[in-house]
């Protein structure tokens, strides 16, 4: 133990010695930094142009990421936080830890973006993914009336889970509890995170799983498998917009801005579709990869503003718990 401590001490000392090149520390969620996520490519591309050392730190998921930043408070080691979504923006702003940036871009989002602190880098629609050869319901009411079995994620521990909660609330408002009551017998089970749910769906445990409209693109592009499809719902689909911002306490404000500008540039945006499996916030000059054109495009986009999301969240959770705990 002691030796390891010493070894770790030496290691951190050697990395400190290389400190004449500026260091930019970016906190993000774990799947971003994984070897199969955008992280390695982003790091390589940014370091090629910034003359700096980009240090990506992965923290579980978006919600845990915000908790980490709040835990560290004003003394945070992070310069930039990448990976929050619109449902977390209100809570993030309330901390006062984030600073506005001047970065703007011509976003290809289905909605207007006007936030001076948080810069979007990708987005997607939540959707139920199913086997393409099976019939799919066309709305939540259809789904509730059908025999289809679904697996969803818990909104208390999972970002998509919370997305579904807000999706139903945005589409049905005060009728949301009734929708959930109707869905109760379709829900096979509720999982802690996306991975368990998707894994169970692939094992055949349910007919549909809550995921993204872009999920079939993974199977199509990476596995040349066109057997998965996302069901288009008449109510419209709730969006997830993923954002980044710089911290007010950063000691690298210019470099942070440079990173945020890089984030909405072609190089970064080209990496996103086939590593994060989401739509890029700004469609790169090379366009979207082949396979994305086969995806469904919802007629209607649903999204609560940051403040609305914060104010309906707890009520929607209570309704969800009430309907599914019967």
């Amino acid at each position: 133990m002691k030796h390891l401590m010493i070894a770790a001490g030496i290691l951190s000392a050697t990395s400190a010695m290389a400190a004449d090149t500026p260091q930019l520390t970016v906190y993000t969620y774990d799947s971003f930094v994984s070897d199969w996520g955008p992280g390695p490519k982003v790091e390589e591309a940014f370091e090629a142009q910034c003359d700096c050392d980009l240090n990506l730190v992965g923290v579980e998921d978006g919600a845990a990421l915000l908790s980490r930043v709040r835990l560290e408070g004003a003394n945070s080691d992070a310069d930039v936080v990448l990976g929050l979504d619109t449902n977390l923006i209100a809570a993030a702003k309330e901390t006062g830890l984030f600073a506005p940036s001047s970065v703007r871009a011509e976003y290809d989002l289905p909605i207007e973006w006007a936030d001076d602190v948080f810069v979007p880098y990708d987005w997607g629609y939540f959707a139920f993914v199913h086997n393409a050869d099976a019939p799919a319901p066309a709305s939540f009411r259809d789904l509730a009336d059908s025999e289809a079995k679904i697996i969803i994620q818990d909104p208390r521990s999972s970002t998509p889970g919370l997305g579904l909660l807000l999706w139903v609330k945005a589409a049905y408002g005060d009728d949301a509890p009734e929708i959930w009551a109707g869905l109760a017998d379709n829900i096979v089970t509720v999982t802690k995170g996306w991975s368990e749910a998707y894994g169970l769906f692939l094992d055949g445990e349910a007919d549909m799983v809550l995921s993204y409209t872009t999920s079939p693109a993974y199977h199509l592009i990476a596995e040349e498998d066109d057997s998965k499809a996302a069901a288009a719902f008449d109510e419209g689909h709730y969006m997830q917009v993923e954002v980044a911002a710089k911290l007010a306490g950063t000691d690298q404000p210019e470099l942070s801005d440079q990173f945020l500008r890089f984030m909405v540039s072609d190089t970064f945006q080209q990496i996103i579709p086939t590593t994060n499996w989401m739509y890029p916030a700004v469609i790169p000059s090379t366009g979207l990869p082949d396979g994305f054109d086969a995806l469904i495009t919802p007629e209607k986009s649903l999204l609560f503003s940051a403040d609305e999301a914060a104010s309906v969240r707890d009520e929607a959770l209570t309704e969800w718990l009430g309907a599914l705990s019967q």
């Binding site: 818990d154 089970t189 509720v190 999982t191 802690k192 995170g193 368990e196 599914l324």
Partner: peptide, 13 residues
């Protein structure tokens, strides 16, 4: 227990 109980338990109950 958390993930096991939630998944095998079938939901928020």
């Amino acid at each position: 227990s958390f993930a096991v109980a939630l998944t095998l338990g079938g939901g928020p109950r």
